[in-house]
Amino acid sequence: MKNLTRILVPVDSSAGADRAVTLAASLAQATGAVLDVLHVSYFDADTDDEQESWLPASIAGPVGRVGQEALERARKYVPASVTAVYHRRTGIPAEEILGFAAEKQAGLIVIGCRGLGVVEGFLLGSVSQEIVERATVSVVVAR
C-alpha cells in the first residue's frame, strides 16, 4: 500500500458508524493520515433551486440537525492527536461518498455496516456494499 495520507469515514449516527470512526481514527493515528469524516443526507433546504425550498421546515430543519448531530457524535471517537476534518454533503450517499473519496484522494475508506443478513441486505440494498463494489481504493468494513 502506498503512503496513506487521507482516510475517509462516512457517518450516519449508527453503532456501525461509531465502530468505523473508532477504527479509522486508530488507523489515522498510526499512519499520521488526515481523517475526513463525512455525513451525507439525501436532501436539505438547499436541494432545489426555488426561491423558497419545497421542503417544509419540519423536514429540512431536522435533516440539517441530524447531519450536525452525526458529525458531533463522530467527534467523540476521534482523539485530539488525530487531524480530522468534518464535512457534509447532500445527495445519494454512495455516489457522494465515492465522489468525495476521489476529490480528496482518499487512500482508504472505512465504513460501518448495518449488520443485515444476506437476504435483508439484498432486499434493502446497502451503502457499504455499494462502496465495497465500486470504490477504486481499499475499503475496510467495520463490524
Rank of each mutant, 00 (worst) to 15 (best):
L8Q: 02
A74C: 09
G91L: 07
V11T: 13
V141D: 04
E52N: 14
E130Q: 15
V137D: 01
A24P: 04
Q129F: 05
L8H: 08
V66R: 10
V78M: 05
L123D: 04
R6C: 12
Y86D: 08
T136K: 14
G91C: 08
L38V: 13
T136Q: 11
T90P: 02
E130I: 11
I7D: 07
L98M: 01
V63C: 09
V110S: 02
S26M: 10
I131Q: 03
A45N: 06
D46E: 10
P93S: 11
A101N: 00
G99T: 06
K76F: 10
Q29F: 09
R19G: 14
R65M: 13
Q129K: 13
V110I: 06
G91V: 11
I97N: 05
T47M: 07
A102V: 14
V37M: 02
A142D: 00
S128R: 00
A24S: 09
Y77F: 13
G16L: 12
L116Y: 03
V137F: 04
V40K: 04
L71Y: 03
R75I: 06
F43V: 13
S53K: 07
T22I: 10
L38S: 03
A28W: 01
L4D: 09
G16R: 00
T83K: 13
T47Y: 10
G91S: 07
V141P: 03
V37E: 00
E72R: 15
D46F: 15
I97Q: 02
S138L: 11
V40W: 01
V63M: 14
P62S: 01
D44W: 07
E133K: 13
E50T: 15
P93C: 12
G115R: 00
L38W: 02
T90A: 02
